[in-house]
Computed example of a mutant assay.
Amino acid sequence: MIRRAKRDRSPASRSPQWFEQFNPRGGVPRESLPGFRRAATTAAAIFDRALALLDEPPSEIDLAAALAVLGSTDDESGEYDDEEAQAVARELPILLGTIDWTPEEAGDLLAVVLDAEARGGIVPDDDIRARITERIWDAEQHLELRSIDKDQACEFVAQHHSLLPYCNPRGMMYAIGAFWRDETHRGRELIAVATAGTPTGRWGPGECPVDGILELTRIASVSGLTRLDRRGRAVPVNASSALASRLIDLLPTSGRRGAVGCRFVTYSVLGERATTYLALVAKGLRPVGIIRGKPPKGAYGEVARMDKIVWEAGPAAREPDWSVLPAERRAGAVRAFSALRPDVRRK
């Protein structure tokens, strides 16, 4: 009698393909799909953030003016600074944590929540949550995230990453691709790739061991890809933020050698807009400091010279340092993080 050795089924031993359990499967009610349930959970959090945002005093944030300039409301009676209103309007997707929504879509949502039952209005809260879920689910049907092999990931990075067109497969735990599906759901195009694994450098102070840290090492996407929003406008497809968001979701089960995943870390070059990461502030991602450039070693010395912002998320992430962000982007990021952490210090 042949006895087969038992497989190690711990999270650390699983192939990256196991994460595909989050993706849709055909032929079953969508309410039973993990992806749809995840969309519903996200929708509930967005609804709560919208309520909290609308409770902010006008002296802190003038939402009425922002909604007016977006055309989400018909109230044009008030006087406001158009430039400031436009700036707040651009911040709305970050404030709500709606990763790939346009400011117009975020404004329309806030306009509906103004009439929610939770605020004494007539629109049932559950109906609003359901509509947000539908919006998220519709996007996920077009943007499918799934594992790819390391060679395919590195080839894509070489073609589409301007600063670091190479990747090191050693220590790579995840290679995830974002595939765009057309209206027929037949054609699938790889439009973005993210790789993550064991940290490649110093991992900072704190109680999280190195085996509990997951570092986003590369993220690259096809430039210029757009979709149509509900108003028929061509808007960017924010696949990079969707990939980073999924990796943050995978953090708890990404520990190695018995450790629990406790810190997600990545970097952006100082001076970049860092829109990919700012879109995830409401999810707990925050800037924690700057690492200064150093004398280059090897063939990719230009990147080594650059100063970089350190971003972290997870239970062992350090406290945010908002001073490292450009002044024009700081207020929106702090407000978005405050909705998640009311005790956050506004620096």
Rank of each mutant, 00 (worst) to 15 (best):
K6D: 12
D8W: 00
S13L: 00
Q17D: 12
Q17T: 10
F19C: 10
F22W: 15
P24M: 00
V28G: 00
P29Y: 05
S32C: 07
F36D: 07
F36C: 03
R38N: 11
T42C: 11
A45K: 13
A50D: 03
L51R: 09
A52W: 14
E56D: 09
P58W: 13
E60Q: 12
I61W: 05
D62M: 01
A64K: 15
A64L: 14
L67M: 05
S72Y: 15
G78V: 04
D81Q: 02
E83W: 09
E84L: 10
E84D: 10
Q86C: 07
A89S: 06
R90N: 07
L95H: 01
L95S: 02
G97D: 00
T98P: 04
T98N: 04
E104S: 13
A106M: 01
L109A: 02
L110E: 03
D115E: 13
E117V: 01
R119N: 04
E134G: 05
R135D: 13
D138V: 10
A139Q: 14
Q141M: 12
R146M: 13
L163V: 13
L164K: 08
L164M: 11
N168P: 03
R170M: 10
M173A: 15
A175W: 03
A175S: 15
R181M: 11
T184S: 14
H185Q: 12
H185K: 12
L190V: 02
I191H: 03
A192L: 03
V193Y: 12
V193A: 10
A196Y: 04
A196E: 02
T200C: 08
G204F: 02
P209C: 03
V210Q: 11
D211Y: 01
G212I: 00
L214D: 02
R218I: 01
V222K: 14
R227E: 13
R231E: 08
R233N: 06
P236K: 00
S240W: 02
A242P: 03
A242N: 08
R246W: 14
L247K: 06
D249H: 09
L250K: 07
T253R: 12
S254P: 15
R257Q: 09
G258T: 08
G258K: 09
A259R: 08
G261N: 06
R263W: 09
F264R: 08
F264D: 09
T266K: 08
L270T: 10
G271W: 08
G271V: 12
L278P: 10
A279N: 14
V281E: 03
V281D: 04
A282D: 05
R286W: 08
I290C: 01
I290K: 04
I291Y: 11
R292F: 15
P295G: 06
P295C: 05
G298K: 03
Y300W: 15
E302Y: 06
A304P: 03
R305Q: 11
R305T: 09
R305G: 00
M306I: 07
M306D: 05
D307A: 10
K308T: 05
I309C: 05
V310A: 04
R318L: 14
P320M: 04
P320Q: 04
S323T: 15
R329M: 11
R329E: 10
R329K: 15
G332K: 01
V334Q: 15
S338Q: 15
A339L: 07
L340P: 07
R345T: 11
R346I: 11
R346V: 14
